[in-house]
């Protein structure tokens, strides 16, 4: 597990993993959150983008926090699907009650790709998006 620089970091949660996500906009928050999640699942640096497979995603939610969790849930499902190695996720549009985007990757190849963790789910526990002096900040707990 590497640290995501200014985009995300992980925090300790007794039985699980917490992700601190930062971003200048909701779009960045969703993309950086996806990067943090993908990095737990697979060594994304070893996933190539040529020969790309793209999965389109659309989620809704009752508010921004719900949209963030539902987006990450969708990323998690797609990235853990059999035969797929995910590299990154891109948001195409986002509003207070929806987001659309795509997850990019390639066919899973056990010779090159390494599955890291089997994540059980992205929880709704204590999730909130806050505006700080240097941008948006969100905390999400993932059940490992």
């Amino acid at each position: 597990m590497r640290e995501g620089g200014a985009k995300y970091s992980y925090f300790d949660h007794t039985a699980d993993v917490g992700i601190d996500i930062r971003g200048a906009s909701d779009r960045e928050l969703l993309e950086n959150g996806a990067a943090a999640l993908l990095d737990l699942i697979v060594d994304t640096e070893r996933v190539r983008v040529d020969g790309t497979r793209t999965v389109s995603v659309r989620v809704d939610g009752i508010d921004r926090e719900d949209v963030l969790v539902n987006w990450l849930r969708e990323v998690l499902y797609t990235a853990q699907a059999e035969g797929f190695a995910a590299k990154s996720a891109r948001v195409t549009s986002v509003g207070p009650t929806f987001a659309t985007g795509e997850i990019v990757g390639e066919a899973f190849d056990s010779a090159r790709h390494e599955r890291r963790e089997e994540l059980k789910g992205v929880t709704h526990h204590g999730v909130r998006i806050e505006q700080g002096p240097d941008g948006l900040h969100a905390r999400v707990v993932v059940d490992v």
Partner: peptide
């Protein structure tokens, strides 16, 4: 111990 929502 600390879970998410319900405690474990």
């Amino acid at each position: 111990h600390w879970g998410y929502g319900f405690p474990i």
